[in-house]
Computed example of a mutant assay.
Amino acid sequence: MAKPMTKTQLVAALAEEMGTDKKSAGGALDAICGLITKEVSGGGAVTLPGVGKIYCRERPERMVRNPATGEQFKKEADKVVKMTIAKALKDSVNE
């Protein structure tokens, strides 16, 4: 598996794609990440066309097991961030 792209590499690629400098591209990336975080943490969802949908899902209270000791205990209800991948991205990976 290839190493994941770092933020610096992503900003550089974004700047080249946009035809702008790295500072503007970095600001745009930070703004997008901030908007996604704000929307999802507020219970909403964000769809990135061609990439997927990021949303928050509530998990109910449940019984879990500590793998080290085998002890079972009740885990409180919580929220988890999920992402559904768009069909276009799945298809492009399998070409």
Rank of each mutant, 00 (worst) to 15 (best):
residue 51 V to Q: 06
residue 26 G to T: 04
residue 10 L to C: 04
residue 13 A to E: 14
residue 6 T to I: 08
residue 65 R to H: 05
residue 1 M to D: 10
residue 44 G to Q: 08
residue 78 D to A: 13
residue 78 D to S: 15
residue 90 K to N: 12
residue 29 L to H: 01
residue 2 A to F: 12
residue 1 M to Y: 10
residue 5 M to V: 15
residue 69 T to M: 07
residue 23 K to C: 05
residue 81 V to Q: 00
residue 28 A to D: 01
residue 40 V to F: 02
residue 50 G to K: 05
residue 52 G to T: 00
residue 58 E to N: 09
residue 13 A to C: 10
residue 54 I to E: 00
residue 6 T to A: 07
residue 26 G to I: 03
residue 74 K to M: 12
residue 81 V to R: 02
residue 8 T to A: 15
residue 5 M to Y: 10
residue 63 M to W: 14
residue 55 Y to F: 15
residue 57 R to A: 14
residue 59 R to N: 14
residue 11 V to N: 00
residue 70 G to F: 11
residue 95 E to W: 01
residue 1 M to F: 08
residue 14 L to V: 14
residue 5 M to C: 11
residue 68 A to D: 10
residue 14 L to C: 08
residue 4 P to F: 06
residue 10 L to Q: 03
residue 74 K to S: 12
residue 85 I to T: 13
residue 89 L to R: 05
residue 8 T to V: 14
residue 52 G to E: 02
residue 41 S to L: 13
residue 72 Q to N: 14
residue 12 A to S: 13
residue 82 K to T: 07
residue 59 R to F: 05
residue 9 Q to Y: 01
residue 63 M to A: 10
residue 83 M to L: 14
residue 36 I to T: 01
residue 79 K to M: 08
residue 88 A to Y: 04
residue 51 V to C: 09
residue 15 A to Q: 03
residue 41 S to A: 12
residue 84 T to K: 14
residue 78 D to Y: 15
residue 56 C to G: 05
residue 49 P to F: 00
residue 51 V to S: 05
residue 55 Y to D: 06
residue 50 G to C: 05
residue 20 T to V: 14
residue 88 A to C: 02
residue 24 S to C: 08
residue 86 A to I: 05
residue 5 M to G: 03
residue 32 I to K: 03
residue 69 T to L: 10
residue 83 M to Q: 08
residue 81 V to D: 03
residue 60 P to C: 09
residue 77 A to E: 04
residue 88 A to G: 04
residue 26 G to P: 01
residue 21 D to N: 15
residue 58 E to L: 09
residue 64 V to P: 00
residue 93 V to H: 06
residue 61 E to A: 13
residue 40 V to D: 04
residue 47 T to W: 01
residue 73 F to L: 13
residue 56 C to M: 15
residue 74 K to E: 14
residue 28 A to Y: 02
residue 53 K to C: 05
residue 49 P to I: 11
residue 79 K to V: 13
residue 53 K to S: 09
residue 1 M to Q: 10
residue 7 K to N: 06
residue 85 I to Y: 08
residue 43 G to R: 04
residue 18 M to A: 15
residue 59 R to V: 08
residue 73 F to M: 15
